[in-house]
Amino acid sequence: MPAFCFYNEGGCLRALILTIVLLALAFVSLFVGVGDLSVSLIALSRVPRTAALILAGVGMSISGIIMQQMTQNKFVSPTTAGTLEAAKMGLLIFLIFTPGAGMTLKMLSAFLFTFLASMIFLAIVRKIRHRNVIFVPLVGLMFGGIIGSISTFFAVQLNIVQDTNAWMMGDFSGILQGRYELIYLTLPAILITYLYASRFTLVGMGEDFSRNLGLNYSAIMNIGLFCVSLTVSSVVITAGAIPFLGLIVPNVVSIIFGDNLKKTLPLVALTGAIFLLVCDIIGRVVIYPYEVPIGVTVSIIGSVVFLFLLLWKKR
């Protein structure tokens, strides 16, 4: 992991510390909670769970930061742009039209919907970019609500409202070997993001600015859309929606370390994974021997942190 030491030395030290914290937490995560800790159990359920948590944490927070660069707005993330709702709709449509088909089709359906919704959202943002910063996430949340209500309409007809809510509730407790591997699809997305980090920084400075520097703006935007849609849809399918992660992690990191992605991307990734592991561990111990789904823990901690950022941030 410390391959990013190339970039700068201060960042390297921070990244190293965060990596150690992450490893420690991963270790805790492997052994916390119920059950006899036989090797087979660890291999079958604990390792996949921890791996999925780390990948989801990295993936969601990186998706957030890419979306923020693409829209030039700090408040945009899968939660505030309708992306999560679109993935849900994809799943639902899949269920309605091809209920028996396999994982690949399910994934494809979710991916297509997130991609489409992100594209529409980008088109919308173009029209409102120069207005109040907070207006953009407002429209995004509204957009998400709309997609959600369309899905709900179908869910009501099929009598599966409770089921759809259950899928969408972020939860890693059901993760077992053989049933979570789709989440590894986030890896290519993460890799691409790393390689294109500087380009995304430029995109964040605006279309004219980046074109002026010879960047193929629309190509980078499409790559960004692809990465975000791939990450979000695979995480949603494997574990359900994990709100707020893509919103708060990049913002906290940006307040402390600035906005040069080349430098901060590793920190965002690590912080995201750490945050998710912490939430997971809290969820597993707080009403032991039961579990609080991580979607709830993340949502509660996340919304409180976000409100804090909104209200107490120095202007």
């Binding site: 207006f135 407002l138 809510n165 259950a166 509730m169 709100p243 979607g295 919304s303 909104l310």
Partner: peptide, 28 residues
């Protein structure tokens, strides 16, 4: 002292999200 209406809305919506996730948890 932040009489920004959009901020008011966003805070309201975020609290709304918090409520929804609490309800979805309880609905489980």
């Amino acid at each position: 002292g932040k009489d920004n209406l959009y901020l008011l809305l966003l805070v309201g919506i975020i609290l709304g999200t918090l409520f929804s996730s609490l309800s979805s948890f309880m609905q489980l």
